[in-house]
Design a protein around this nucleic acid. Structure first.
Length: 431
RNA sequence: GCGGUCGUAGCUCAAUGGUAGAGCGCCAGUUUGUGGAACUGGUAACGAGGGUUCGAUUCCCUUCGAUCGCCCCA
């Protein structure tokens, strides 16, 4: 029989990694609750159109990275609407916002979320087919102060994760629905005059109405051309310019450090005005982006709703965990047992079993290995699992109505009567 | 979608055209009820399929998987 393996690009999230997830999640959730965000969970699969229109019909994500969901054995000819595993969070959340009628609730509507996303890609460092993001959206608010507060929150989370100094928050603006098309056209014209020198991909980008992407092409010649292109900030409309400079002023006021990156372009079509990305400092190659986000004032409209301003951001959980590990930033241990019960002989086994249920009722994290016989092997196990306190019960202790409590770290032990055991144990654990 | 590297016990690695060793781990023991050391024994692997060959884990092909880079993105 051949071993069954996990599908390509997926990970088992193993016990030893859970503490990092807990660590990150607790920090994030705390920040969210403090700012009046509420949690939302949307389906893992949605209709394909939910993503196609907002993200962009020409984007890689929509064209070749979505997993289609269908009933096993169903025919491909039927008229059912195509369902896909979500490749992005924001579009699904706005779909829900519109569908549920939250647009009628008091605004701004603030939501946070966490969960898996799916994109069909060649796996590599920092890129899997299933990955986890957490993030938030502020819907129904167009103020530049909200942009600043959003970036402040990113900054604040990075700080709590102890990686702020190793990261840089890059900020740019890409224009609103009024001026973005003009910018696109201007860039299109600009790059058209250099068309012969651009790489194959960038030539396509001009035609695909996606000239913004040429700005962050990795090809040297393209970079050179792009560096002489007009900056977006100089092409946006007056309103966008004001919005952006106000955002920056607020950020300065909040003492948030950021880097302006006039070439920053985000891959998803729905972004307007402020966009930002958290990247690892001094890393040119590999997947160095830990988080990203921006304003998306026209997304709701794309999904058939009325015009709704919104801004959001999301973090890549796996990338953050990897980065924490690389920098030896440890997460607190959350699930280690405090006590191990050791039994010698059948009568003792009965007693430890009962005792175990009492300990867990009192909230003491306990561990037992009833399959083991010898004292030695059970102590060895406690040692390996780094469990500090060990309760030894043999025939003698059954008869005496007592338990030996051994402190593995101090290498000391005492016999304690059954009646006083729980309280004694609790005070020992505290010290 | 493109390119590079790599697939041997649970882990880290060897060796070999004639079916594989070690270290760590795990299990048990070293006289009867005390772990972290030592010793003894046990455990377990050539990713899959095909080809060449008398014979392949070793050579070739395919495939699957891992890994890294490009593209793209978190």
């Amino acid at each position: 029989m051949q071993k069954l393996l996990k599908p390509r690009g997926t990970q088992d999230i193993l016990p030893q990694d859970q503490k990092y997830r807990d660590f990150i999640w607790k920090i994030f959730e705390k920040k969210m609750v403090l700012q009046g965000f509420e949690k939302i969970e949307t389906p893992i699969f949605e209709r394909a159109e939910v993503f196609a229109r907002p993200i962009g019909e020409n984007s890689d994500i929509v064209q070749k990275q979505m997993f289609e969901v269908s009933r096993l054995g169903s025919s491909k000819n039927d008229n059912e609407e195509k369902l896909v595993l979500r490749p992005d969070y924001t579009a699904g959340i706005i779909r829900s916002y519109l569908e549920t009628g939250f647009s009628g609730a008091p605004q701004p509507f603030k939501l946070y979320y966490a969960g898996p996303l799916f994109r069909y890609e060649r796996p590599q460092k920092g890129r899997q087919r299933q990955f986890t993001q957490f993030g938030f959206e502020v819907i129904g608010d167009s103020a530049s102060a909200t942009d600043a507060l959003t970036i402040y929150t990113v900054w604040d989370i990075l700080k709590s994760l102890k990686i702020l100094k190793l990261c840089s928050i890059e900020i740019n603006t890409v224009g609103c629905e009024l001026c973005k098309p003009d910018i696109s056209e201007k860039l299109q014209n600009f790059f058209n005059s250099f068309k012969k020198m651009l790489c194959g991909d960038c030539k396509k980008r001009i035609n695909n109405n996606n000239p913004l992407r040429i700005l962050d092409c990795k090809e040297k010649t393209c970079q050179k051309i792009a560096s002489s292109s007009p900056d977006i900030i100089d092409m946006v409309c007056e309103n966008c310019k004001t919005h952006f400079s106000e955002t920056l002023e607020f950020l300065d006021e909040l003492n948030v450090s950021y880097d302006l990156n006039p070439k920053l372009v985000r891959g998803l079509d729905y972004y307007t005005r402020t966009t930002f990305e958290v990247v690892i400092k001094n890393v040119k190659e590999r997947q160095s982006s830990l988080a990203g986000g921006g304003r998306y004032d026209r997304l709701a409209k794309t999904l058939g709703g009325k015009k709704t301003s919104a801004i959001g951001m999301s973090f890549g959980v796996e990338r953050i965990i990897e980065f924490l590990k690389e920098n030896n930033i440890d997460a607190p241990e959350t699930s280690k047992p405090q006590v191990m019960l050791i039994q010698l002989g059948p009568k003792a086994r009965k007693k430890t079993l009962k005792l175990m249920t009492e300990l867990i009722k009192k909230g003491i994290k306990s561990f037992i290995a009833p399959g083991k016989e010898s004292l030695k092997s059970q102590l060895h196990l406690a040692d390996k699992k780094k469990i500090r306190f060990v309760l030894i019960v043999g025939e003698r202790e059954v008869f005496d109505k007592s338990v030996i409590v051994k402190d593995m770290e101090r290498n000391s032990q005492e016999s304690i009567n059954d009646g006083r055991l729980i309280n004694k144990l609790k005070s020992k654990i505290k010290n």
